[in-house]
Design a protein around this nucleic acid. Sequence first.
DNA 1: TAAATTCCTGCATAAAACCGCACGAAATGT
DNA 2: ACATTTCGTGCGGTTTTATGCAGGAATTTA
Lengths: 267, 267
Amino acid sequence: MRFYAGIYFILPRNPANDMLKKERQAYILHQVNLHNKVLSSSLSTEISVSEDTIRRDLQELADEGKIIKVHGGALSHSFSQVYYPSNNVYSLDNKKIIAQKAASLIEDGMFVLTTGGTTIIELARALPPQLKATFISGSIPVVLEYMHHPSIEVILIGDKVNKNSKITVGAEAIAQIKRIRADLCFLGINAIDIKNGITDNDWDVVTLKKAMIESAQKVVCLTIAEKINSLQPIHIDDISKIHTLITELPPDDPLLKPYKDAGIEVL
Amino acid sequence: MRFYAGIYFILPRNPANDMLKKERQAYILHQVNLHNKVLSSSLSTEISVSEDTIRRDLQELADEGKIIKVHGGALSHSFSQVYYPSNNVYSLDNKKIIAQKAASLIEDGMFVLTTGGTTIIELARALPPQLKATFISGSIPVVLEYMHHPSIEVILIGDKVNKNSKITVGAEAIAQIKRIRADLCFLGINAIDIKNGITDNDWDVVTLKKAMIESAQKVVCLTIAEKINSLQPIHIDDISKIHTLITELPPDDPLLKPYKDAGIEVL
DNA sequence: TAAATTCCTGCATAAAACCGCACGAAATGT
DNA sequence: ACATTTCGTGCGGTTTTATGCAGGAATTTA
């Protein structure tokens, strides 16, 4: 083996021992753009200045918006520029309330399966910053949102990508879900009623949600009250499989009473 | 030499060294253009004038826009052009050229494995609209870009998400790649040289790229010329595994000759 | 939770820049 | 020709900048 533990220290070149400030910053920016990341410590030895100086340089470059400064070094700006602004989301305020309730169910160390959808995105944003849990999803927008969180682990379920719903669907995705034993499963649902249970209108999505329900110890359905007592063409599962139902309404709202009576925890 | 008590003395005036102002500034400008940088202090001793004079000269040249004055000296203007690209994505134009060349290799019906990175994103944007092929990647930004295409199929490789690089990494991802027999594999690479082959600086990324190389019939490396003949800590594979190398340079550029000689197709 | 890094803030210092000012030399005006 | 102005330059003193260092806070890692 030519490389020992992946550590192979080489200086590409020895910059002039006496670098001007601007020159040094240009060199740093160059390195950031080239490698997408730099470490304060290695730059310090590379250019032979103190780490404080490097840090000040990184700070200035960051203030100019040329790089993104992070603990220990800096990152290229080009890599982290994917945002999903949530201006056009229907019933956003209600979804925020739902997300808040749902987040309270999650405890440190849990494995949490989630579907896609705007409600789940709000959930991702409502997670307390110090939470340490593992989130599993096949939805690309949701995973992007999870990635902004500082401490949670994110598992992406892979398979063919459905361009409309931006989720991965197919047998491979189902198989991956089946291999998981999650503590919690959050389903953003499109329709629920007492008699037919939860229903949806996309075959692939239905199959995925079925698999998720089977793989989780506790199934939590999230939906705005509007969708309570509505029906969609394809059956996912009966309400007997649901442990918890979360809407923006207070738990004692009469609309929710039948579900409570059916043994579902209503939050 | 005549001076009293060393208080007042005159430097021997050598007419040859005694420069006029314009002459001196021309000399300074020449030095700046030659070395991309000058120091006030060294110019002072070099021309035997006070640093104040040098500073005034530099100030005037800077006011005329001929140089960039910085603390301690001055820099040439070309310097800043080279090191401060105006674009967010480094070397974007070059990457567009590379993407164009790479896209020409893809034919209808092909299965194409790709890594992540800005070069691959450009490739995604450069795909002809009527192309019907299947693209497989574990990079979330790249997959988002693929999804904008009207007719290609997209397979997302799932596993734990690395928050920095926004790609999925881990044994599950490797296993999924191993199950694939792709026609083409596009690697956006960070460093390549004849002796060490392709190298990178992230263990997970290296493992993924290795797997991709094994799963593809034809391996195509994409990189800007700047990264040619550079080295990173961790070894991915020797150049013998590479079939095609694409840079923004014309194929007959001397920089690429060694790779051609090694049997690699250079585009 | 403890240990190790990394960051930040203030301070010290040396170098560089700045500000007048003086003085000699060249240019200009009378 | 002589006085006056302007320019170029250097010098002393002051201000600003760049950088390193110490020590405590914050953050990451083991």
